Each structure stands twice: as structure tokens, then as C-alpha cells.
Simulated scan of single mutants.
Amino acid sequence: MKPLVLNTIMLTVISGTIMVLMSSHWLMIWIGFEMNMLAIIPILMKKFNPRAMEASTKYFLTQATASMLFMLGIIINLLMTGQWAMLSTPNPISSNMMTVAMAMKLGLSPFHFWMPEVTQGIPLSSGMILLTWQKIAPLSILYQISPSMNPNLLMAMATMSVLVGGWGGLNQTQLRKILAYSSIAHMGWMIAVTTYNPTLMLLNLMIYITMTLGTFMLFTLNSSTTTLSLSHMWNEFPLIPPLILTTMLSLGGLPPLSGFIPKWMIINELTKNDMIIMAMFMAMTALLNLYFYMRLTYSTALTMFPSMNTTKMKWHFENTKNMILLPPLIVISTMLLPLTPMLLVLP
């Protein structure tokens, strides 16, 4: 893709999301979603092949259905209240429709089937955008309509999402599918706390985005797409396997690392609101995620791929790909735990 075309498309994607974030008119929000959806399709098909075309088609059909449900919710709200302004609280019917539409856009269970397939069929750079930037706009809508949302619907989707996200990734060897199931589980954690403390959802989103960006950049260095290609990385980039180990364990929510902060605070918030069984269930399903992250770190950093003494070493001490943001992303995704007391005072 030509640089000018790529820059124009990326600008449209960013503009669509910013329009959703800044608008207070339901029609402008819907237009922002449409701009974002139509501009992301060429990015998903950046390396054109039948697999990418299939993934883009699945993504388009799912997002178009979600946009239709979202517009239906907007029209119902217009008929009930007589205004387009977002400041008015949506009525329960339109709120449920909007919640389901945003769940489809985010890939929450039971609308998660498209996400692993789409992420697997597109390049690593496109998958990075799909699993990070594309989450911001739908979650901002859920944040703004959180007072009128149905808590039972949210908890049902959150429970299924953390279970599917943990179970689905257990037998995967494709890194992009593993990160897609990880995204489903993280979205479940965010949705679970939306009713009680929406600010915690935003904190979880920011930490999730930094961890996922760092993980994708580490995979991009060696163009790794399977666990087998990760096991060869020690032979080319000897410094990268320990970094993958720490970011993976942070994604899993292991205590000394940054990924533990949102899980700790969400479990704390659920417990304060007498959702003890839900908090215990989510903590137990987090162990499933931690298992397949540990499996990846085992094949990457804790073992060496069998090699003969005559094998040529291919260590690349000079970086061949420009990853300016990788060092700060790794630092943020692993060392934020001392800031937790400051974050505990969030409203």
C-alpha cells in the first residue's frame, strides 16, 4: 500500500474514533463508528491474500450488524425521548440494544466467534490495531451509558467472556489467536466492573493497551506467528525472550507486574459490592489465561530449541526494525505496581 493512501486511511480511522469520543449527538457517534469501520477494512487487507480477504469480510459483516443494532437503539431512544442528545439517559430497551451492539463490536461472548478468526487472518500490525485502538470507541460508549445499563446482562456477558477467553486459548499454537482470546478475557474483566466503577474500566483499558502493544511489537521483531517460531528466537534475538516472559506474565496478571493492578482493583470493587462469588470465579478463570501465557514463556525463555554444536549462530545485536516505543511500553507494562496506592483513590 502506498504511504499516502495508508496515511489517509489511518487518519480516517483515528478521526472516526475521536468523533465517537467527542460527540454528544447520537447520529454523529454512529457516523464516527461507520468511518472507523470502513477505513479499517483496507488496513486488515494490507497484505492481500484469500485469508485476509475472508477475515476482512467476517469483520465487515459483524461490525455492520452491530452498527445496525446500534442505530436501532438510537431510533428507539429518539422515539421515546424525542431528542438526539447523548446527555439524556437512554431508556432500558435502547440501552440494552446499544449494550449488545457494543458487545458485538468488542467481541464479547457470546458474540466472540469472529475475533480469533479475524485476528488470525490478518498481519501482526493490523492485529495490533484491531486489538487495541478498535476497543476505545465502543468502551467509551459503554462508559457513558453505564448508569442505564442492565447489570444482569453485563454480568452474564462478563462471565461468559472470561470463561471463553481462558478456555479458548488453552490448545492454541497460533500467537494471534492466543492474543485474541486474551483480549476476550480482558474485555470480560472490564465489562464486569462497568456497573460499579466505570473509571476502573478505563484504567484496565489503558494498562491492557500498553501490554498488548508491547507484546505485538516483540512478536513483530522476529515476525513470530506460532509458538515454534518463538522457540527459535533465542538464536537470533537473545535479549527478547526474557522481555516476552515478563510481558506475558504481566498480561496474565501475576502480582509483581503491572497486569496485576486492574485485576486486584476489580476484585476489590466486586467484593465491596457483595459480588464475592463473581470475584472468585473471575480469579479462578484468570488461572486459565496464566496457564497458556506460562506455556508461551516456557517455549520462549525457559527452554532452548535443540541445536548441534555446528549450528550457525544468528544473533542480531543491531535492531533491523524501528521500534521506538518498545522500551517505554515494556517498562510501563511491567513496573507500574508501586503506583497502585495512588490509583486506589480513583472515584
Score class of each variant (00 low, 15 high):
P42V: 11
W264R: 02
T57R: 13
N91C: 11
F260I: 04
N49K: 13
V331R: 04
M187P: 09
S299W: 12
G252T: 04
L78D: 07
S148F: 03
T246P: 04
G214S: 14
I74K: 03
S223C: 12
M102S: 15
M187N: 09
E34F: 06
T99G: 07
W234S: 08
M115F: 07
T285K: 08
P241D: 11
L38P: 02
K46Q: 02
Y293R: 12
L78T: 01
M313K: 09
G73S: 04
L11C: 12
L175G: 02
F60I: 06
S333D: 05
M278C: 13
N235H: 14
A286M: 13
P138K: 10
S94R: 10
V162F: 00
N96F: 06
Q63F: 05
L202C: 05
S161N: 04
N273H: 03
A156H: 06
P347F: 05
M1R: 09
F216N: 02
L38D: 04
L337W: 03
M217H: 06
T17N: 08
K312P: 05
P147D: 07
I141W: 00
T62H: 02
S299F: 14
I184Q: 06
M304C: 11
A301W: 14
T246D: 12
F48R: 13
L245K: 09
M35C: 12
V5E: 15
G73V: 07
M22E: 06
T159I: 03
A158N: 05
L221Y: 11
P42Y: 07
D274V: 15
L130F: 15
L344D: 15
P110N: 09
I43N: 08
N322W: 05
F70C: 02
I31V: 15
I41R: 06
Y293E: 02
T246H: 15
L326A: 00
T225R: 07
Q174I: 02
L175E: 03
L290D: 13
M308P: 00
T12S: 11
N152T: 03
S125D: 11
W114N: 09
M304G: 04
T210E: 12
P110M: 02
K135Q: 07
S15D: 01
L153S: 07
A301H: 07
G188D: 00
H186M: 08
A66D: 08
Y298E: 07
T340Q: 15
Y59H: 00
N171Q: 09
M53H: 03
M308A: 15
M265V: 05
I276Y: 14
L21Y: 00
M342V: 15
I122G: 03
G214I: 14
L202Y: 03
I76P: 02
Q174T: 02
P3H: 08
S161A: 11
L290N: 12
I122C: 07
M128Y: 08
S146H: 09
E236W: 11
F70S: 04
S229M: 11
E269P: 10
M22N: 06
T340S: 14
S161C: 14
M35F: 10
M97W: 01
Q172D: 07
M335R: 06
